[in-house]
């Protein structure tokens, strides 16, 4: 098991190294002068030249890359051209908002998707199955921004039970201020016992989290249903029936475990994907997260920020993949052998 884990991690590091190289080269070949951006629109040629030296852009490309890698090894992702702040600091400020949103969204997706898939498979071709199919296919097909706006119309404008946008009510933020902590509002307010803040955060999370959860929930439900149906055909499931195990025991104790392994990959990859693609959700709900930061960085050719976000998300992808591989090895002991 340890050898298996270490092998996966080593492979992950190689992937990340290759990725930094590719990202770095692409950022350098785009026709945009970072030094000119750094100095702003009114800079003179001398000022831009000085900035070029300051930013190390006058050195050969491989020197720039090695420097970049050396900085990164120390945890320095460079300085944003747009905000003139260290990228690491920017990310640290934006990240908790996005991670909180995505984690809540994925938990919702799993809590809805897995039972929906299991019930659809258990009661195949019944009204339950048809309903499950309609729900999951709809949630996969709805465009994110459209669903977000519909939810806002229904729950904010018509029913008036949930807030429109933002992470927390601005008045609550002033009257019950949160002491600095992890940056995850739910966690911080819970730890500090700040209940008004907690409730407000939770209410604000609902709509964006549901929006974000719709796609993965539908996907997970379909995946679980089809892998459950496949597993039901296996001899080891017939064996359970032949030995008088109840249908619910067979489904939840045995078949689900066999069916979970393929679904797990999908869940983890959608999780990583959601982290990198929350931009639309963050835009509609005015969520101060990483998606918004990345989009701003792209439109201003802020390459250190773009690279920082890219490498961060890639590292997350790799880490999640490793976790999935390990989880699958735990779920299915045969995996370690292959």
């Amino acid at each position: 098991m340890w050898a298996y884990t270490l092998r996966r991690i080593a492979l992950g590091i190689v992937v990340l190294l290759g990725l930094t190289l590719v990202t770095f080269l692409i950022a350098r070949v785009v026709p945009s002068d970072p030094a000119a951006r750094w100095m702003g629109p009114r800079a003179t040629a001398e000022q831009i030249g000085a900035a070029r030296v300051k930013l190390g852009l006058d050195k050969p490309l491989y020197v720039q890359y090695l420097r970049y890698m050396a900085d990164m090894a120390r945890g320095d992702l460079g300085t944003s051209i747009r905000t003139h702040q260290p990228v690491r600091k920017d990310l640290a400020a934006m990240l908790p908002a996005t991670v909180e949103l995505v984690v809540v969204g994925m938990v919702l997706a799993v809590l809805v998707g897995i039972p929906l898939g299991v019930l659809s498979a258990m009661f195949r071709d019944s009204p339950m199955d048809h309903l499950g199919r309609v729900v999951s296919v709809t949630s996969v097909s709805l465009p994110t921004f459209w669903l977000a706006m519909i939810l806002q119309l229904v729950f904010f404008k018509s029913l008036g039970i949930l807030p429109l946008a933002d992470r927390v009510d601005s008045i609550i933020k002033l009257t019950y201020p949160l002491r600095p902590g992890t940056g995850f509002y739910l966690l911080d307010s819970l730890l500090q016992g700040n209940w008004p803040f907690f409730h407000s955060t939770l209410a604000h999370l609902m709509l964006p989290a549901v929006t974000l959860a719709a796609y993965p929930a539908g996907l997970v439900a379909r995946m679980i249903r089809s892998s459950m149906l496949e597993v039901y055909q296996e001899d080891y499931i017939r064996l359970g029936r032949a030995f008088g195990f109840s249908e619910s025991l067979i489904t939840f104790r045995y078949a689900l475990r066999n069916a979970l392994a393929p679904a797990l990959t999908v869940i983890a990859l959608t999780f990583a994907y959601s982290l990198g693609s929350t931009f639309l959700v963050e835009a509609v709900f005015n969520w101060p997260g990483m998606g918004k930061y990345a989009a701003d960085a792209v439109t201003t050719a802020d390459y250190p920020a773009i690279m920082g976000v890219t490498i961060f998300i890639a590292a997350l992808y790799v880490a999640l993949n490793i976790l999935v591989d390990i989880a699958q090895a735990v779920l299915d002991p045969r995996v370690q052998l292959s």
């Binding site: 080891y236 017939r238 064996l239 030995f243 475990r257 779920l331």
Partner: peptide, 16 residues
């Protein structure tokens, strides 16, 4: 009544 299956590899759940 109990049953012995033909192929024990297929009849035993691989993840238990």
């Amino acid at each position: 009544i109990s049953m012995i299956f033909q192929d024990p590899m297929a009849a035993l759940n691989p993840v238990f």
